[in-house]
Amino acid sequence: MRDRYVILAALVLFFVLVTAPVWYARAAGEKAGGPDVKLPTQEKACVMPVDYMRTSHMDLLISWRERVVRENIRTWTAPDGTVYTVSLSGTCLKCHTNKAEFCDRCHDYAGVTPYCWDCHVDPAAIARSRP
């Protein structure tokens, strides 16, 4: 008989757990919508089309890493024939000058922690931190 209260309490707990994201969104005042990414102003096109970059930039970056680190090939020719220097800090961050407002916005939004920055540095952040 008294087990029914335990079962009811468990059901309430189950309901709260299942709908937790909804309550959290209410409490935190979340709004639907994507991240606010700052795109570079001086350049119009990236090394690959935007659709590819949006979904698969990590493939390109990892192939760049392997070309440089394992094969010592420091240039990369885009499908449109342009030759780029393979460098995360030098080429990518030349246009996307602000890592915090470009890379991190999407990565934080999607809950992704890439390990690029375990080794690489963000030159702008270092420059800012110098007195």
Binding site: A32, T55, C106, Y109
Partner: peptide, 24 residues
């Protein structure tokens, strides 16, 4: 590879009761 950011927009739309289905 799907567009993860668009998928999160869809998911957040569902939990905030402001549903959207981004084109991507």
């Amino acid at each position: 590879r799907p567009d993860v950011v668009a998928i999160k927009e869809l998911a957040l739309g569902l939990v905030t009761f402001a549903p959207v289905v981004p084109a991507t």
